[in-house]
Simulated scan of single mutants.
Amino acid sequence: MSESELASLPLLDIRAISPMERHPRIFGMVHALAEGQSFVIVNDHDPRPLRYQMEARYPGLFDWEYLQHGPDIWRVEIKRSLSSGCDCCCGG
């Protein structure tokens, strides 16, 4: 993805959000994504625990790509995967 494409993605800087509100805010954005859409989170530490939560709640539905690996700032693109063709209620 080019820098201009990345710049056009919605950005959620969670450094300014209280820790208790961070994951709920992120999951709210995750739920709003249509297939193929993505957004970028910016954090002051590696958001690996969030990734584990997403994989447990939504296995295979989202892609996770580190764009920047600290040490002071982490940027991660979270993208809703394209449908596998399942017409069930699970969202897969």
Rank of each mutant, 00 (worst) to 15 (best):
L50V: 06
R75I: 09
D87C: 14
G92I: 11
G70H: 10
F62A: 01
Q37K: 12
H69I: 13
S18E: 15
L12W: 05
H45F: 04
P19N: 01
K79P: 00
M20V: 10
V30T: 08
D72V: 08
L50S: 09
I41L: 11
R57I: 06
L11A: 05
I17A: 00
S8T: 10
R22T: 07
S2P: 07
E5N: 12
C89R: 14
I73Q: 11
G92W: 14
S8R: 13
A32C: 07
L67P: 01
Y52G: 10
L12M: 12
R22S: 04
L9S: 00
S4Q: 15
H31R: 12
F27C: 02
D13G: 11
S2H: 08
G91L: 00
C89S: 15
D13K: 08
D13S: 09
G85A: 05
I78L: 15
G70T: 07
L9F: 05
M54S: 07
F27A: 03
Q53G: 08
E3P: 04
M54E: 06
Q37W: 04
E5W: 09
I73S: 05
E3L: 15
A34V: 03
Y66P: 07
S4V: 14
C88F: 08
Y52A: 10
S18K: 13
P10C: 06
F27I: 04
R25Y: 03
F62W: 07
L6R: 14
S4C: 08
S38A: 14
Y52C: 06
D46G: 01
D44L: 03
I41C: 03
Y52H: 11
P49S: 05
F27H: 13
I17K: 01
P10N: 02
C88Q: 09
E5K: 14
A32L: 09
V40N: 02
P47S: 07
R57P: 03
L6M: 10
V42D: 00
P24I: 07
I26E: 02
H45D: 09
M29I: 02
R25L: 14
G60Q: 02
S4A: 15
L67R: 14
P49H: 01
R48C: 11
F62K: 05
G92A: 15
Q53D: 11
S38L: 03
C90Y: 13
A34Y: 04
N43H: 14
R15V: 08
A16F: 08
D72H: 07
M20T: 14
H69N: 10
E3F: 11
A56Q: 09
S81E: 14
C86W: 10
H31M: 06
P10M: 08
Q68G: 02
G60K: 05
V76A: 11
E3M: 14
P71G: 00
A7K: 13
V42Q: 09
S38E: 00
P71Q: 05
A56H: 15
S84T: 14
P71M: 02
P24N: 02
N43A: 15
E77K: 15
Y52P: 04
I26D: 03
R25Q: 13
I78M: 13
E77C: 13
S8V: 06
I41G: 00
P47D: 03
I17S: 00
S2L: 12
L67D: 08
R22E: 04
G70C: 05
R57E: 11
F39C: 02
P49I: 02
A7T: 04
R57F: 07
P19D: 01
E77Q: 15
